[in-house]
Design a protein around this nucleic acid. Structure first.
Lengths: 138, 138
DNA sequence: CAAGATTGATTAATCAATCTTT
DNA sequence: AAAGATTGATTAATCAATCTTG
């Protein structure tokens, strides 16, 4: 990272990359990633289980991505797949006990990291940033 | 993308993803990606050629990533590898004529897209955003 | 041995094609 | 045929290990 003068687009992309790398690095201490934590977060917030399609929708990504993400979470023992009683085409992603524990730890790490990162900005500035980003991304 | 209320960290990550997707989509019309355009940009700004290691440094990424990026650019005919006369361990990435042309087209698309995207913000707001991001990413 | 580049493995995302069930 | 999920291919990034040259 040599460049310090970046125009609009690359300023956003670059800062995002920096934050992502830092949070990712802390989460890796407990075997998590941002992608995995986000999936656990959605499941925890949906009462422990969801069909993969709905998980994809709430993660704002494509279904095939969720298939593979759940593969990895299942390999980690944090999520398991179960049959959907209502529709036999559908498979449920279910949070395991280990998954709940990992989620608690992960959320703690993430919010701590976020707090540290955003301590560079005042409350005012954070609000302003949020507002500008919302305007830009809509 | 259902969520509309995102806290600091995810606001940045999400907006970045949205911008990236939109620019990526336009660049794909001419067979380019942000990663490829960035590499062509560095090469064009360095007088057409650079050792792969230095390319990696200026792209702020790991060397093995550049090896594969240059593989793809070479397959596209936009860059070619050449021997470094000074050091036989080193390989130069050299911009081809097609690479120069693609770069010109790509930069045009990218700056047009950037202009459109950032038309959502006033000059003042863009400046403020840039300032806040710089503070956050240091 | 260290420096430069490559290879192989893994994570993450996409798209297109496929398979099963409705 | 359409919906839900999976598979296989590709892009992009990382890390660890390796090979070549200094």
């Amino acid at each position: 990272m040599v460049d310090t003068e970046r125009t609009g687009l690359f300023a956003v992309l670059h800062t995002s990359g920096v934050l992502e790398t830092r949070v990712e690095s802390k989460l890796s201490d407990v075997g998590l990633s941002i992608a995995k934590l986000a999936a656990l977060h959605v499941l925890a917030g949906a009462g422990e289980s969801l069909p993969l399609g709905q998980l994809a929708e709430r993660l704002a990504c494509v279904k095939s991505n969720v298939t593979q993400l759940v593969d990895r979470l299942e390999a980690d023992g944090l999520v398991s797949r179960a049959a959907d009683p209502n529709d036999r085409r559908s498979r449920l992603a279910v949070l395991t006990a280990a998954g709940r524990k990992a989620y608690t730890k992960g959320i703690e790490i993430q919010s701590q990291a976020e707090k540290e990162l955003f301590s560079a900005l005042s409350t005012e500035e954070s609000k302003k940033l949020h507002e500008l980003l919302a305007k830009l991304g809509r």
